[in-house]
Design a protein around this nucleic acid. Structure first.
Length: 493
RNA sequence: GGUUCCUUCGUCUAAUGGUUAGGACAGGAGAUUCUCAGUCUCUAAAUAGGGGUUCGAUUCCCCUAGGAACUACCA
């Protein structure tokens, strides 16, 4: 039987790291098995639904290069793939269960339910959940409620005796006593929409899903779903509950740990291949030593046996490292293209960029590329070119081991050596030697000469290497800034 | 509270009865005769605790401890 798996998010928020990891595992498993990857939109929560979330889902998967074989937009034999478009289906199945006595109408108000919950909490009762008030209504009672115009929900009758077991590929058998399963959960809401449990089971069956790969937070409802499959007389798919992605504090990863929306990572300048590579490695490994994987490689070598059982902490720093690696591995041309929007947003260059600006970016990329963790780092790294804000604090010009007097001398004479050398087209190495010689003469370290020059030119103690900076700025601007730097240092207090 | 799941360096993980317990990130030290970054080299760092089984346990079993998830007309 061909593998058919699905990613079935609810469009109630932006796609986040945890969700996307589930999508990736499903996708890679399908590809590695020659199976199908299906996208299904579970938009049954009308309160929390948003168009923005749906668009974010599509654009995020597109950005990551995850294509679905069946689903919205592309269609397929089991459509529609958006649950709100399958609305009538769920009521039919729910009412079938009612007819068979496996489910029943419930007219309890939200207030009554709240009251029941409160009393259970106060009495510290072990028993939690619905009290099955409507489980055995007479026809008269039902008719009375209907007369009052109360819109009922449909609840699934969970057995109070016995136990239910399901097999998980990672966890093995998981058994729960039926009396511990949430008593008679709602499967069809009063607005006519199904809840997750009903819609999920029906669609997975109708769409021929063979393996359900979802986060471990779903383990507790596994037995309920098995009961539902049995009620319909359907085969239960294979389960594979994925380890959760946690924050530093060991709790489920969420906004308070930092960015979790993939869109945010994209905006900061993370590359899709870095996200894919790192996120896949959170909870999965091939052999414990291979760490770089392209999406194409993962489509071939992904295995369920490499998935870990225990939850994994998401390490932002390691993602940064991966991203830096991928930036350095990318071509200069690609980085130039990717960095351009950030420079435009900073107001450094025009949109669209002029030819001169494009040429400048091309020269900027090689030195900057070595120093970036994320693409947006290009902005602070190149700001000195576009914004001229001289350093007025004289101590910044003074290197460790030097003093103000020697620094003035170093900048003054160093500038002459530099400008004369540059203007006459001398070798960079030769100029460097002369600058080093000057340092020796002054009795300071080489940096004692370089630092004031770099600060004058790049307006910062931390900058690109001197000659890269000069190349980007041009000789005339370099000279201007050097003279100004000198005047700042020589200015009397 | 109840139910279920989990437990190797700070973090991600490798090793499924026999290894000096391996790799990576982060940390520390050094090199690269300009800062920063990058790169390279070196370094420190773990089998939660207690019982078994066994000639031998990270690995199998039990208990304890800790952590997490779930316990909605949300998914």
């Amino acid at each position: 039987m061909d593998v058919r798996v699905r990613y079935a998010p609810s469009p109630t928020g932006l796609q986040h790291i945890g969700g996307i990891r589930t999508a990736l595992y499903n996708y890679f498993f399908a590809r590695s098995q020659g199976g199908s990857f299906i996208l299904r939109v579970e938009d049954t929560d009308r309160e929390r639904y948003s168009d923005e979330s749906l668009e974010d889902l599509y654009s995020t998967l597109d950005w990551l290069g995850i294509r679905w074989d069946e689903g919205p937009v592309v269609g397929g034999p089991c459509g529609p793939y958006i649950q709100s478009e399958r609305f009538d289906l769920y009521r039919e199945y729910a009412e079938q269960l009612v007819r068979e006595g496996k489910a029943y109408y419930c007219y309890c108000s939200a207030e009554r339910l709240e009251e029941v919950r409160k009393q259970q909490a106060e009495s510290k009762s072990e028993y939690q959940g619905y009290d099955r008030h409507c489980a055995h209504l007479t026809d008269e009672e039902r008719a009375e409620y209907e007369r009052q115009g109360i819109k009922p929900v449909i609840r699934f009758r969970v057995p109070t005796e016995g136990k239910t077991t399901f097999h998980d590929i990672l966890m093995g058998d998981i058994t729960r006593r039926n009396r511990d399963i949430s008593p008679d959960p709602i499967i069809l809401k009063s607005d006519g929409f199904p809840t997750y449990h009903l819609a999920n089971v029906i669609d997975d069956h109708l769409m021929g899903i063979t393996h359900i790969m979802r986060a471990q937070e779903w383990i507790p409802s596994g037995p309920l779903h098995v009961l539902l499959y049995q009620a319909f007389g359907w085969d239960v798919p294979q389960y594979c509950h994925l380890p959760m992605v946690m924050g530093k504090d060991g709790q489920k990863l969420s906004k308070r740990h930092g960015s979790t929306a993939v869109r945010d990572f994209r905006a900061k300048g993370y590359l899709p291949e870095a996200i894919i590579n790192y996120v896949t490695l959170v909870g999965w490994s091939l052999d414990g030593s291979t760490e770089f994987f392209t999406r194409e490689e993962l489509e071939k070598c992904f295995t369920l046996s490499g998935i870990h059982k225990s939850p994994a902490v998401f390490d932002y720093k390691k993602l940064d490292w991966f991203n830096g690696q991928y930036i350095r591995a990318a071509s200069d041309e690609r980085i130039a293209d990717l960095v351009t929007p950030y420079l435009q947003e900073a107001g450094f260059i025009h949109d669209p960029a002029t030819e001169d600006e494009k040429a400048l970016i091309a020269r900027l990329v090689p030195p900057v590329k070595e120093r970036m963790k994320v693409l947006s780092d290009a902005v602070p790294l190149s700001a000195f070119i576009f914004r001229d804000e001289p350093v007025m604090d004289r101590s910044v010009y003074v290197a460790k081991g030097s003093d103000e007097e020697k620094t003035v001398e170093a900048l003054s004479r160093g500038s002459e050596i530099l400008l004369a050398g540059l203007r006459s087209g001398r070798e960079q190495a030769a100029i460097e030697e002369d600058l080093a010689a000057l340092a020796g003469e002054l009795g300071i370290k080489v940096n004692g000469v370089f630092q004031p020059i770099r600060v004058a030119i790049t307006n910062s103690a931390v900058s690109l290497p001197l000659f890269d900076s000069i190349g980007l700025l041009g000789l005339d601007e370099t000279e201007r800034r050097l003279r100004r730097g000198l005047s700042i240092l020589e200015e009397k207090q």
